[in-house]
Design a protein around this nucleic acid. Sequence first.
DNA 1: ACCGGGATGTTCT
DNA 2: GAACATCCCGGTG
Length: 197
Amino acid sequence: MKTLPRRFYRRDPRDVAPDLLNKVLVCGTRSGRIVETEAYCGPIDPGAHSYRGLTPRTTVMFGPPGHLYVYLSYGIHWCCNPVCGEDGEGVAVLIRAVEPVAGIEEMRPRRPKARRDVDLTNGPGKLTEALGIVGANNGADLVTGDQGIVIADDGTPPPVAPIQTWRIGFGNNPARDYPWRWFVPGNRFVSRPEGAR
DNA sequence: ACCGGGATGTTCT
DNA sequence: GAACATCCCGGTG
């Protein structure tokens, strides 16, 4: 298991997102293989939090690559995003689903409402709850692992033919037209194996 | 299986 | 005051 270097993140999020497939997100003693991602592209992306410029919430997203942007979705769920590109760009990748690799017994009590194992981590709000990622982890350095959170390569390459399709959860926002979601074909933990529309 | 609504806090109009 | 990068539960067929 090798922690991904800073340069892995210092690229366009649309290149990083498919490359993150099959990498391992580690949080303390728990980890999961990344099987679904979405790219968020700053000023050219009306779906990105950074679209309208720097705000207190998006400070980390506008910071240097390789740090974790964590935000609260719908007032309830935490979502986690490795920051990409260059310092000041405001681009990142949302991790939408992982497949448990280690510590699954610790994940079950953290996800008491999950009836089946697949419900442990098959969504962006679910995987943060299962792994234990919360708002206090906003800004964590994924390269130094200063908060026990890293992304590592265990030797599994990304899928040869990842599925690329539309992102999830945008109503009538024109962001719905950008096909910036990728997932591992056939993996059971993908939140929505079909296209978004 | 599929669909509608409620929870709940931050951000922006 | 509305929208929101979600999830869960209870209704119906």
